[in-house]
């Protein structure tokens, strides 16, 4: 059977490449809509139909298996291998389900292996005080730890930000509520006062001046007006808080006046400091001796 297959393979070998290409072409034409998913993970692309020329030499495989396998009576402790049933078909493209399946396999396998080891009475767990070289170095584990911590911190910060945002929104709402309430209160108050007034008018000022406690100042409409009277002694543009008019300290005032007259007060200063023809031609202040230093510098 094997020989037959091989012969077939040889016959078809030169055709095979064409076949494969054709297959691909067919795929292209037939499976256009699927092509996008293929692009997403090109790692798992495979032929839709198995190629017919593929070799499968069962006898040879089993022969080789017999050649390399250890004797049957080798103890389990040499192999440490455990077979686990996969309960259901795992979807490859669902990362979470796939990893979960692997994890479960490992967990189940470990449990069984530990039971076996325990029943054999062999020590198998690392004591807490057993220190030896690990696969990952300490510096690497430090990095891992740092990353975990950073992740945690990020999450916490995000949480805090979210909370702050929420509380802000809540505060805003409360504030709006308060304002509304206040406005309502005001309205009600005014309403009630109006009502009361009307009532009073209707009754023809029956109470008169007798009920003095109801004689509000704002009743006349004066209460809300600003007093037109100015504050005494303050000029409208005065920023000194009314001190300018006071002028109580006569001595200081005089001194100031004297100094102003001596040194000048206000006005442009630029013109005073500029040269004019007179000052430019004036050499009185020029000293020749200064040239010495320059000479030295040149040398």
């Amino acid at each position: 059977m094997v020989v037959e297959k091989k012969g077939l393979a040889l016959l078809k070998e030169n055709k095979m490449e064409d076949n494969v290409e054709m297959d691909i072409n067919q795929e292209m034409s037939e499976y256009e809509p699927e092509s996008e998913s293929d692009e997403e993970d090109d790692e798992h692309v495979k032929l839709i139909e198995p190629s017919k020329t593929a070799v499968y030499n069962t006898d040879g495989l089993l022969d080789k298996l017999g050649d390399i396998s250890w004797p049957d009576n080798v103890g389990w402790i040499h192999k440490l291998s455990i077979d686990i049933d996969q309960e259901q078909q795992v979807d490859v493209n669902d990362d979470l389900a796939r990893e979960l399946a692997f994890f479960n396999q490992a967990l189940e396998g470990t449990k069984r292996a530990f039971e076996k080891l325990q029943s054999m009475g062999l020590p198998f767990l690392r004591p807490s005080d057993y220190y030896a070289e690990m696969v990952k170095t300490d510096s690497h584990m430090e990095k891992v730890k740092g990353r975990l911590l950073a992740e945690k911190r990020n999450i916490e910060e995000a949480e805090e930000r979210r909370k702050a945002r929420e509380s802000k929104r809540l505060a805003k709402e409360i504030q709006a509520q308060k304002l509304k309430e206040r406005a309502k209160q005001k309205k009600e108050d005014i309403e009630s006062v109006k009502k009361w007034r009307k009532q009073r008018q209707k009754s023809g000022f029956a109470g008169g001046d007798k009920d003095g406690e109801m004689d509000f100042s704002f009743e006349d409409g004066k209460g809300f007006e600003r007093s037109s009277k100015k504050r005494p002694g303050v000029a409208p543009g005065d920023r000194s808080g009314g001190k300018a008019r006071q002028g109580g300290k006569g001595k200081i005032q005089k001194k100031r006046q004297f100094r102003d007259s001596k040194f000048g007060f206000g006005g442009r200063k630029g013109l005073k400091k500029q040269n004019t023809t007179e000052t430019a031609n004036d050499f009185r202040d020029f000293k020749r001796g200064n040239a010495k230093g320059n000479k030295k510098r040149k040398m």
Binding site: Y56, T58, L61, L62, K64, L65, K79, L80, S81, I82, D83, I84, D85, Q86, Q105, A106, E108, G109, T110, A113, R126, A132, E133, M134, V135, K136, M141, K143, V144, R147, L148
Partner: peptide
């Protein structure tokens, strides 16, 4: 850094195989 575990270097691993390794000759091998 996503893989956070660590273990002794050179400790003997337990090997777990899924059961479909026994279905075909080539998987067995």
């Amino acid at each position: 850094l996503k893989l956070t575990g660590n273990h002794l270097q050179g400790s003997r691993p337990l090997l777990t195989f899924s059961s479909n390794f026994d279905h075909n000759a080539h998987w067995k091998l």
